[in-house]
Amino acid sequence: MTSRKNQTTEQRMAAVGDYETVLPFQAVGVEPFIPGNEVTEIRQVLQRLAATHAVVFLMERWFEELRELVDELNDTLPVSIIPIPDQRGSWGVGVRNIKKSVEQAVGMDIFSVQS
């Protein structure tokens, strides 16, 4: 049986984005990270967190900008990088990702199937 301390370490979660987007996550125990708007800095923070956290919530705008890196990290490390909308609203990235994942697993887009 794994100790409680080890479970906490293994299941760390982080939220990466601007202040208004990630601050609410702190209320539920998710570590907020607010890098600058430079792609290089965001990339470095994401790579570091992907190696140490089980789940990383990433602002949709940055998720789209760093799509190749996100896919690589999701494929090579035991991390789930999940897009979250910012204060301006959703870009639909999360829904598209779910549809894509389900289509790959099932072999068809079950969300567009009409009864």
Rank of each mutant, 00 (worst) to 15 (best):
Q44W: 02
V93F: 04
I110Q: 02
V93W: 03
N74A: 12
D75P: 01
F111E: 04
A27H: 05
L77S: 00
I42L: 01
I42E: 03
Q104H: 13
E10Y: 07
R67V: 13
L58R: 05
E31V: 12
R88G: 10
Q104I: 09
G36A: 12
V22A: 05
R88M: 05
I34E: 06
P85D: 06
I98S: 01
E31T: 14
F63C: 01
L49R: 08
Q7P: 01
M1H: 09
I81S: 05
V79F: 01
G17R: 01
Q26C: 12
E20V: 13
P24R: 05
W62Y: 15
N37Q: 11
R67E: 15
Q114I: 15
R12V: 09
A54Y: 06
V28P: 01
A15T: 06
R12L: 15
L69S: 08
Y19T: 13
T52I: 04
A54C: 01
W62N: 08
A105Q: 13
V70M: 07
R61P: 00
A50L: 04
Q44S: 10
G89D: 11
T9C: 01
L77Q: 11
K100T: 14
S115L: 14
V113F: 07
R61C: 05
L23R: 11
D109C: 08
G29L: 09
R67T: 12
K5N: 03
L66N: 13
E41N: 02
A105N: 09
L49D: 03
P83S: 10
E68G: 06
T52W: 00
V113W: 06
V45R: 02
P32M: 06
L23I: 14
I98V: 15
E10T: 07
Q114T: 15
A27T: 14
R48A: 13
T8F: 12
E10S: 11
S101H: 11
F33T: 02
L66Y: 13
A15E: 07
R61M: 08
R48V: 07
E38F: 05
M13D: 00
Q11T: 13
I81A: 01
E20D: 15
K99A: 13
Q11S: 11
Q44R: 05
D109H: 12
L46Q: 04
G92H: 11
P32I: 07
A14Q: 02
V22E: 07
V102M: 11
V28L: 05
K99W: 04
P83D: 10
I84A: 02
E20I: 08
A105M: 14
E64A: 03
G107P: 03
T76M: 04
T40F: 06
M59W: 02
K99E: 10
L73W: 09
V28T: 10
K99P: 00
V39S: 04
G92V: 12
R88K: 12
E20Y: 11
Q87S: 14
S80H: 07
E64Q: 00
G107C: 07
E65P: 00
T40V: 09
D86C: 06
Q47G: 08
P78H: 10
R67P: 00
V45S: 00
S112D: 15
G94D: 02
D86Q: 09
V28Y: 04
